[in-house]
């Protein structure tokens, strides 16, 4: 939603009074170099700020009021406010690439700015819509549930508003395409992802309700993170350059034990699973595995990841 503010920046600046995040940030940062500059940009900058601004551009004899007027009229103020709100909502680890990406997307969206003015074909339009939805979905990590949920609904709206002729709604084809794109960009191997997709995909012609959409997106992102965690785990097991099959299997078995036992409706189950995966239990299992007199061989990364992912996917509720 916050993003639509940015799109409609030209007339959206009637909400000037909500500059709170900007101003907070500016004043609290005073004493740092940022603080001084923050004064300058504030819409209600005092006279002291004017000399600052003018110093930055001595060649131009224009007063600050006109600079502010310019910023407001050109929609800069509103655009930056929307961007800042988005940064605060998503709290990206690296805000600068995030902002570059954000403005890039903004520029592409409005043909007046991007320059790509010609009416795009239907297929291109579809691709653009998916790209935009993906961008929204990635703005916040799924663990920030509120922000993520917001972005999911914006993405859903993006995809549902398909042209004037068709009725609004999201079809299974677009949904599946989006899932595939997420998995592909997440660089998860095909053989890991396809069992998941089989579970959460819809048929091409089916209408996808919002709940299913959200569930699918969330599951997909969680799996990707699960896989990358499993990958980090393998990295640890692979310390000596060769992951011991017995130890790997012990770790996987422990994971399986923790995941499979009982239903996860009761909160206490989470604690139980956690304790089973705690250092004590896991270390014991690994120790036992090492002591067992079995032939020693190694397990490859792909195999480990696939096995771990299978455990995860087994718990995924199939759609429909």
């Amino acid at each position: 939603m916050g993003d639509d503010d940015a799109a409609s920046s030209q007339h959206g600046w009637s909400t000037v009074s909500c500059t709170a995040p900007c101003q907070d940030g500016g004043t609290s940062g005073s004493g740092r170099p940022a603080g001084k500059m923050a004064e300058k940009r504030r819409p209600t900058a005092p006279v002291a700020g004017t000399s600052e601004a003018r110093r930055a551009s001595p060649a131009r004899g224009l007063a600050t009021e006109s600079e502010e007027e310019f910023l407001r009229q050109a929609g800069v103020t509103a655009m930056l406010r929307a961007a800042l709100l988005k940064v605060l909502e998503a709290r990206p680890d690296e805000p600068l690439p995030f902002l570059a990406h954000y403005f890039d997307n903004l520029g592409l969206r409005s043909p007046a700015n991007g320059g790509a003015g010609e009416p795009p074909g239907l297929l291109l339009l579809q691709q653009q819509r998916i790209g935009r939805a993906l961008w929204h979905l990635r703005l916040a990590h799924h663990s920030q549930r509120t922000a993520f949920n917001n972005n999911v609904s914006v993405a859903y709206e993006c995809l549902s508003a398909s042209g004037r002729k068709k009725r609004p709604g999201l079809d299974g084809r677009t949904y599946s395409e989006l899932l595939k794109r997420i998995c592909r960009d997440g660089e998860a191997p095909e053989e890991i992802v396809s069992p998941l997709l089989r579970k959460i995909q819809c048929r091409d012609h089916e209408a996808v309700p919002f709940d299913i959409f959200r569930y699918g997106m969330l599951t997909c992102f969680v799996l990707l993170e699960f896989v990358s965690r499993a990958d980090a785990l393998y990295e640890v097991l692979d310390d000596s350059g060769q992951a011991d099959r017995r130890v790997c299997q012990a770790v996987l078995d422990t994971l399986e034990g923790a995941l499979l036992a009982g239903d996860f409706e009761a909160p206490s189950r989470y604690l139980e699973a956690g304790s089973q995966l705690g250092p004590d239990c896991l270390a014991l299992a690994m120790d036992r595995a090492l002591l067992a007199r079995k032939p020693n061989s190694s397990m490859l990364r792909d195999e480990f990841l696939e096995k771990a992912a299978t455990l995860f996917i087994a718990k995924v509720r199939p759609v429909g």
């Binding site: 940062g29 740092r32 940022a34 500059m37 551009s57 800069v76 690296e94 805000p95």
Partner: peptide, 28 residues
């Protein structure tokens, strides 16, 4: 990162420094 107050998060990553600078560059 998520637990920080807004302004601290912004200050820590110098977001405002760059936003301010972007605006003054834009004006120039």
């Amino acid at each position: 990162r998520l637990a920080l107050p807004d302004y601290e998060y912004l200050a820590q990553r110098h977001v405002l420094t760059y936003m301010e600078d972007a605006v003054s560059q834009l004006l120039e």
